[in-house]
Write a protein that binds this DNA or RNA. Structure first.
Lengths: 243, 243
DNA sequence: GGACATCTTTGCTCTTCCGCAAAGAGTTCG
DNA sequence: CGAACTCTTTGCGGAAGAGCAAAGATGTCC
């Protein structure tokens, strides 16, 4: 369930085309793209729904499609031998799930799972490749997104190499706040379990739990099941430097 | 010293143009590029020499040029607050030093240092940007290189999150073997210090020294000052799985 | 060639954090 | 509504590896 295509491009009504165009316009993938190209790009997409925990693609699968999240969120994971799971990153609305820039003949080198019920615009990857051949700006955007992702991972790599867990976790929470923070009665909330936070920062759910309990008592965050609300983002960011 | 440009493009002799073309042809950056574009690209470059330990660019510098190594090697590092240094990667002949795809208005987010006396072809980054606008294949190559670098860092991130130091070090040595391995009387040798290996794998020079001493006694590697020769690459690769 | 600088080894101690266990809290579903 | 799941907390060892110190090895420069 929840995987059926909502509509084929040829059947788009004017209203649907508008709505979709607005979604596409917000994404960094399509920034600075001339209006004329918009229509063509948007109309080539299908809409797709994913249930919570549904896999979007598996490591090793051929890259069949390009998936642009329009609502919800996803995690990009890699599996070790003995069931260990590392989260390479998370994606929110407007972001592409899966390495953008991979060619149709390539294979995914990670697995994507929906963190929440999500909707996405989906292109056939060969068709998307063709679109990117025609749009210099689209290619530039792809390059730019890759540079940013590389930069973020480099930052995380530096942290995991040199910083202790408390620093890594607090910085990761700040990053998540900007990327996936949801406003829930005046508080920015991150909807991830202790274990997922551990898999993002290279530690264990126990250590995450202990740190969050501590910060909770200090009034910096408040913890709920599978969620963390941040009261004081500044204090969180500075937790690293002093301690 | 050793930083002067060897020659301006306008002064290239026919022999020099040929030699340079051959260098460029080997690089993944220029693979599949039509011969006609070659000449133009190659003739826009300057040649530059770097002494051992010379910095090629610093974190925070504006991206002024694109540097393609033709001989020697370099390390890409990031500096922490208190002098801690992490090596994000190393580069050998045919590889671009510094994140390819960055625009002239961007800034470097890492520092590059020559590991050995090196030569490179250097383009003004605005000029290179212009070249890449005209060559669709060049843009594709840039995307491809970024995907590969992202993938390698993802792999290292998974390892540093889930594997113990011995596994990380042995796998890193295998990767280095393929990338920078130099044949020295029948042995593949990696010319990096214990500390640099530690900075690559997120550990300390002490731990690296202890592991290499152990593997040395077991006949898998032989260690020299600022170098490691690998006798048995297979045993090295498998060190991870069993132990 | 000898003094100096740098890199490496090795022993020892100490901290951080992992890993297990068991109890507690919060959901879901019949 | 209560039983079954799943997620979280917390306590308690224990292990991996960090960090320091001091000696040894190797290269470099005058």
């Amino acid at each position: 369930m929840a995987t059926a295509c909502a509509s084929a491009s040829s059947l788009l009504g004017e209203g649907e085309a508008r709505r979709r165009e607005a979604l596409v316009r917000q994404s960094p993938l399509f920034s600075e793209i001339p209006a004329a190209e918009y229509r063509e790009i948007a109309s080539a997409a299908h809409e797709k729904h994913f249930a919570r925990r549904q896999t979007m693609f598996l490591e090793g699968d051929p890259v069949r499609r390009v998936v642009l999240l329009t609502s919800g969120s996803a995690k990009i994971v890699q599996l070790g031998q003995s069931g260990t799971e590392v989260i390479l990153g998370v994606r929110g609305p407007g972001e592409v799930v899966g390495t953008v820039g991979l060619r149709p003949q390539d294979r995914h080198c990670s697995t994507a799972l929906a963190l929440a019920p999500s909707t996405a615009l989906v292109w056939d990857s060969a068709a998307f490749e063709a679109l990117s051949q025609r749009s210099a700006q689209l290619r530039r955007n792809i390059t730019h997104i890759l540079c940013q992702q590389l930069h973020e991972l480099e930052e995380r790599y530096r942290e995991i190499s040199t910083e202790r867990v408390s620093v890594r976790l607090s910085h990761q929470l700040v990053r998540l706040l900007n990327q996936l923070g949801r406003r829930v009665n005046g508080q920015l909330e991150i909807r991830l379990s202790r274990e997922e936070l551990a898999q993002l920062t290279g530690t264990t759910l126990f250590t995450v739990s202990r740190l969050l309990s501590d910060w909770n008592q200090r009034g910096i965050v408040s913890t709920r099941r599978e969620a963390v609300s941040v009261h004081d983002p500044q204090a969180l960011a500075q937790l690293g430097e002093a301690e």
